[in-house]
Design a protein around this nucleic acid. Structure first.
Lengths: 133, 133
DNA sequence: GCCCATAGTGTCGGAAATGATACCGTTATG
DNA sequence: CATAACGGTATCATTTCCGACACTATGGGC
């Protein structure tokens, strides 16, 4: 694991733009950060908000966000496991960026929200259990 | 060509974030947009600002930006060819986003700028000519 | 003993993004 | 006739990302 994206940064002022993009790029990081802006969430809580993400992907993205210092991972020594994710102070500095992305998206894109796509959150989460048969 | 990234948008409010990211994602789009914010540029002018991009990549990214309505491509019927790229009004609506990305990058990342990395712009641009031998 | 919930990991394969390299077309110029 | 300038294409290989799917660990409740 531990992907390193676009290894080398180019020079010139534009670099800062790329540098930031590299950190929040990754198919799900933007949304994850967005949801964490609204508060601490447990693993499965995030999963419910991202109906199409696989468990592996969620783990990967969260680990990368943690590695980059944006997210704090807190494991409670309980059974069944309880793991909470929250933004670090550094993570919170991304707020303006995330909000800018969101604002633009809200204004300039139409996408079917709700219904067809959202319908089956829980279904997904429970299907694992069913398959255990 | 004509890559379609992350085809389907998920539902929920976070979507807007992803939707925007999908459009400006692509290893070079962010920087390209940033440079175009500062004015119209010719193909090779952009190339000089992005020392490590290949010609193919620059073309590809510009075409995608054009397709998404962010960039206007103006071809002058001259020889040798002259092609100018500029932001459309829609492209300019991305300004706050790009600037937010830049601002964050400037504040929160250190990267060697100048020197080593920048040194050889023209070298790159002239090497093609040399190789023609 | 067996199942349940939660939060993972491991492995594999395909798709997508990017890179390297070489070639193209037009005309003015020497 | 060869060359150079500019802005490309075409082709192929590589790298990276992502999804499907199966498997794991733990301890409480039945």
């Amino acid at each position: 694991m531990t992907r390193i994206r676009h290894q080398s940064l180019d020079c010139s002022p534009g670099c800062a733009v790329e540098a930031t993009l590299q950190l929040i790029d990754g198919k799900w990081k933007g949304v994850i950060l967005y949801h964490l802006l609204q508060g601490t969430l447990r693993f499965n809580a995030i999963r419910k908000r991202l109906p199409n993400i696989t468990q592996r992907m969620l783990t990967t993205q969260l680990r990368e966000l943690e590695r980059d210092g944006f997210v704090l991972r807190t494991v409670y020594p309980e059974v069944p496991p309880k793991v909470e994710y929250s933004l670090t102070p550094r993570g919170r500095t991304l707020e303006p960026v995330i909000l800018a992305l969101k604002a633009w998206g809200d204004e300039h894109t139409e996408f079917r929200h709700g219904r067809e796509a959202c319908a089956d959150h829980d279904e997904i989460l429970t299907s694992a259990a069913k398959r255990t048969k």
